[in-house]
């Protein structure tokens, strides 16, 4: 019974402490964890390690803790951004082939809101790419040299992308009539959306969302395993050193602010659309002729959660960056 507690006991210690001592401490527990008194002793030791970290007694752990916080911030913002992309693509799917698009041509406020959403998407994408480039290059370098066990994890986004592309190819072949499936029409008309077509497109949404989640988790794991704060790159024959997590912080702030602006613009866009075309709100203009209301609630809820998560991550990392 006590032996079963072993993995949990090590987890009581702060992350920075575990990064340094976990394997050897776990090996020790494997040999000497016999009585409830040992469990109490480990518990007290964990409290002491947390207090040591809080008091800043141990400089090495404190630095590791700051690095961990900064890294977690970058990962939270990245995961929030992926979630936001899913919400954004759903918004595009909702607007596509709906009366909302023609309305934008006659309603300048609506068009302006849509432009803000698009501009926000571009800015957020650029921020993520710029901030993430040194981190991605460092990870590739490590995975190809000393961190090979993570190579499989890096293949998850590649396979996810391939799965999405294969599914799109399948939909294209069905749409062009080259593949015929009973119960699935090559082209659907308003008011005639068979169950087979709904299932096929729902399958695509499922592959896309699962691929995005799996890729995000894989990237999260690889980045968590990379205990490097700075890396030296060579460009035009000149070396320059980048603090990869600190470097990514400002782009993470820009991406988070972009998400907030896109959320506000999306709310404005929905508000303007529904006031101009109330029948859209109560109708079924969502993808696969589903309820607009459900998509509206889902998109706004996902965007809100992702934006809150991104700002929560930033607040967590700000103190670490200031003291680092």
């Amino acid at each position: 019974m006590i032996k079963k507690l072993r993995p949990w006991l090590t987890r009581l210690y702060p992350r920075a402490w575990r990064d340094r001592y976990a394997p050897e401490f776990d090996a020790l527990l494997e040999q000497c964890l016999h009585s409830p008194l040992d469990v109490v002793d480990v518990f007290l030791g964990a409290i002491d390690a947390h207090l040591q970290l809080l008091n800043g007694e141990n400089v090495t752990w404190r630095m590791m803790n700051m690095l961990n916080k900064l890294r977690t911030t970058i990962l939270i913002v990245f995961a929030a951004y992926i979630g936001f992309i899913i919400a954004g693509l759903s918004l595009v799917g909702l607007a596509d082939d709906s009366p909302m698009i023609p309305l934008m041509k006659t309603n300048p406020s609506l068009a302006a809101a849509w432009t803000i959403i698009q501009a926000g998407a571009v800015v957020a994408l650029l921020a993520i790419v710029i901030g993430g480039t040194p981190l991605v290059l460092t990870i590739f370098r490590r995975v190809l040299t000393s961190q090979r066990r993570d190579l499989g994890l890096l293949l998850v986004p590649v396979f996810s992308f391939l799965a999405i592309m294969l599914y799109l190819g399948f939909i294209f072949l069905v749409g062009s009539g080259r593949i015929q499936i009973p119960g699935v029409l090559p082209a659907v008309q308003p008011g005639n959306f068979p169950l087979g077509n709904r299932l096929m497109l729902a399958g695509f949404a499922l592959v896309f969302v699962l691929g995005a989640i799996a890729s995000t988790l894989a990237v999260w794991k690889v980045v968590s395993n990379t205990d490097i704060e700075q890396e030296t790159f060579h460009t035009l024959g000149r070396p320059f050193t980048v603090k990869i997590h600190s470097f990514a912080f400002i782009p993470a702030v820009i991406a988070s602010i972009s998400m907030l602006i896109m959320l506000i613009a999306t709310l404005a866009w929905f508000g303007l659309t529904f006031s101009a075309l109330p029948q859209v709100f109560t109708g079924s203009f969502g993808p696969w002729q589903t309820s607009t209301q459900i998509w509206f609630i889902g998109i706004v809820a996902l965007m809100t959660v992702c934006t809150i998560a991104a700002f929560f991550g930033l607040a967590r990392g700000r103190s670490a960056r200031n003291s680092g």
């Binding site: 401490f25 020790l28 008194l37 109490v40 002793d41 480990v42 007290l44 030791g45 390690a49 141990n58």
Partner: peptide, 15 residues
Amino acid sequence: LGPGTLYGALSRLEQ
């Protein structure tokens, strides 16, 4: 020495 006590002292000595 319990494992928690041992590593508490060990980490300080190393630091």
